[in-house]
Nucleic acid binder design. Sequence first.
DNA 1: TTATTAGGGGACAATATTGTCCATTATTAT
DNA 2: ATAATAATGGACAATATTGTCCCCTAATAA
Lengths: 144, 144
Amino acid sequence: MFSKACEYGIKSTIYIAEQSIDGKRVSIKEVTKAINSPEAYTSKILQQLKKNEIISSDKGPGGGFSIDNITMEKITLKDIVYSFDGDKIYKGCGLGLNQCNAVRPCPVHHEFAIIRDGLTRLLEETTIKSLALQLQGGLSFLKA
Amino acid sequence: MFSKACEYGIKSTIYIAEQSIDGKRVSIKEVTKAINSPEAYTSKILQQLKKNEIISSDKGPGGGFSIDNITMEKITLKDIVYSFDGDKIYKGCGLGLNQCNAVRPCPVHHEFAIIRDGLTRLLEETTIKSLALQLQGGLSFLKA
DNA sequence: TTATTAGGGGACAATATTGTCCATTATTAT
DNA sequence: ATAATAATGGACAATATTGTCCCCTAATAA
Ligand code: FES
Ligand code: FES
């Protein structure tokens, strides 16, 4: 469904948001521990999230990654997925045709488009803050 | 969504079925022309489809690939997807946790599971024959 | 100013996926 | 039998993705 990079990106962002709600900045080590991911690779992921203005970072002692409250309310899963996997999941053809086109549909277009649009809505409507709050409430988990 | 191999597998199968309805066997070259795919690679795909008893093949002049009528009514998209991509799309966690588990859900589990189950139903219920007939009727297309 | 802390970035390595090449085998028709 | 046809199979190559290593830069505190 999503690339590994995107999965790490989503999980990292949710974790950072959860900690930011408590006013805590987190280091890369804390992130990788929380989401069970390779450290150096996750570091690249976080850099990309920063470039896309999804998270913030501060160097030096007391530094780390964070997300301000306004951003975590504004950013949705769609923004993160778009950063890593582009828009093929929203717009791409399920059978890999150059472009999805209702007037020249592939054999699965009609059925597939419904699923895909449902997924798009979900990703658009789910904010990072809502996911972070669920996590904080012990209603969801970031690793097995 | 699906691997390239799986996409080629689906398209090949639908095309072969369409031709089989007309009693025609098709060669690799015809398949790759119809679905616009690399020939040697598609050849591997067809071998795998054969191993999984989704299509039949016959060597020699007059030979080629085919699907008998009973099989094309029985085989669904799910069978093909399973052959190439396994069951992660049906059972896997959207955020890549080791296993999807409702009692220890990842942050997107509840929303994601609905989408995923819808996709599963779609793949289970769609037969190759139905897709082949649509294609034959000019209602869908295998390449741009 | 210096030691320490923590993110940034470049090069590289491992792995998986996608794709190619070429020789072989089986089948059919002549 | 022989030639032609068409799938089969193995080795290999290209590319994309995932992951690692190591040094650099910035910030803070002592
Ligand atoms: S054309 Fe394939 S999904 Fe729309
Ligand atoms: S636990 Fe992630 S989708 Fe079910």
